[in-house]
Design a protein around this nucleic acid. Structure first.
Lengths: 153, 153
DNA sequence: AATGGAAAAGTGTATATACACAGTTATCGG
DNA sequence: CCGATAACTGTGTATATACACTTTTCCATT
């Protein structure tokens, strides 16, 4: 990998004061770590979180589920597709003929349980690399930021 | 929006101790904020950050640029496509016949300069909602985490 | 009961992300 | 000089993300 010319802008200026740039960069990297840990089961971390969020839940209408996940409704629709194809999740009729509700199948529950140890490994690896104190603070700040930002909107 | 049955798992258990879930959720939401601010120019925040990172730079080989952005090389290739189509960046020959280097066009520079005020508005809105102290701590923790995680890999 | 508005969900389109694989060019050992 | 290897990049495929638009269904008001 060739370095660019040595007379460049100093690195201090490279990631400017952009909060989102840092959020996105870090999310990309950490997502890779979790995905690599989950890879032996052919599961992505987004999928893991969807399965886990459905554990022990009654049938969840798409819209409610999307809101719970903090995800756009149409994003959730697409994200459910591979899970349905794999047989881990099913769409059933809701209380309303407009609604379609998401449920976890027996295979989905089993898959999630098999994935938990791998997820735990990923979480541990992250905690070991970054430090428990920093992880705790980071989680607290992310929760705080999301709450504030959502209240504003 | 119908609420699911009231006998659900309590909300405290819903986002479990998953650091990445929080990172991804918050990133989704904050990305929307920035994208909405940049929408009048038809620019996404990822594109904004690519243009900005090219400002004042010599021609950047794809690989070096990807490393600088903390982005997979092939992701960068795809992300550059709309910018090239729009005429904001160009691919030129590198020092090597293997290399292709990215440069910012005059239109790209102009577009970035027009976008800076919109980006600043987004950053200000985020700071106002979340609080300056929290934003500062969040940035510091994100930088720290990324550095630690990258050193480990 | 008819109807118009609101609610729930899906689709078209475009970008963002990255792994596995393939193609081309440089470099180095003999 | 030649062949093996490494370096640089692109493509195929799959998922993740969300906006604009459409379709279907419910419901309230007349």
């Amino acid at each position: 990998m060739n370095e660019p010319a040595k007379t460049d802008t100093p690195r201090e200026l490279q990631p400017p004061q952009c909060t989102l740039l840092r959020l996105r960069r870090t999310t990309r990297r950490v997502t890779q770590i979790y995905d690599h840990h989950l890879a032996p089961l052919g599961l992505r971390v987004t999928q893991y979180s969807l399965l886990g969020s459905l554990m022990g839940q009654p049938p969840m209408p798409i819209g409610s589920f999307a809101e719970m996940m903090g995800m756009d409704r149409t994003t959730l629709t697409r994200n459910l597709r591979p899970l349905i194809r794999a047989g881990w999740v099913d769409l059933v009729a809701g209380e309303d003929r407009r609604q379609r509700a998401v449920i976890l199948t027996a295979e989905g529950k089993a898959m999630f349980k098999r994935a938990v140890p791998l997820w735990r490994q990923a979480e541990s690896a992250l905690r070991a690399a970054v430090g428990s104190d920093a992880i705790g603070q980071l989680q607290r700040l992310l929760d705080h930021s999301l709450e504030r930002v959502s209240a504003t909107a």
